[in-house]
């Protein structure tokens, strides 16, 4: 049984999560979150893969040619867009935090007080 792509997805997710948990800089933390999220692309694409099949694009190949699952590919596209939007928003929050507190180190940030 070939589980290498799945193993890479698990490894990427855990490596990203480790970075998030131990990060000392918010920008680094956001990059680690993107690493964890990229594991989902690999998982999605790996699930739909079929040995010897082509891309689900029938522009230049005859209809009926064996192709991989198009649904997971569309999901991966959604995933990328969500990741980009979320990264942009988080970076904006990081900029805001830096301007208000003068630090990007999450350990130095105090809990919110009313």
């Amino acid at each position: 049984m070939n589980v290498l792509p799945y193993a890479i997805a698990v490894w990427l997710f855990l490596a990203g999560l480790y970075g998030v948990a131990t990060s000392r800089n918010l920008i680094h933390l956001i990059v680690c979150l993107s690493v964890a999220q990229s594991s989902t692309y690999i998982l999605l694409i790996a699930i739909g893969y079929r040995q010897g099949a082509g891309a689900p694009i029938f522009m230049y190949v005859p209809i009926g040619t064996p192709a991989v699952d198009p649904v997971v590919q569309a999901l991966a596209l959604t995933d990328v867009v969500v990741s980009a939007a979320m990264t942009a928003l988080l970076l904006a929050v990081a900029v805001r935090i830096y301007k208000q507190t003068g630090t990007l180190d999450p350990q130095k940030l105090r809990p919110l007080r009313s």
Partner: peptide, 26 residues
């Protein structure tokens, strides 16, 4: 890995070309 068993993707690959005349199934 590489032995994708579901037929849903295959159905879409066939149906989208016939029903919608598109070649980019995603």
């Amino acid at each position: 890995f590489g032995a994708y068993p579901e037929s849903y993707g295959d159905m879409l690959n066939a149906a989208a070309v016939a029903e919608r005349h598109v070649t980019n199934i995603p």
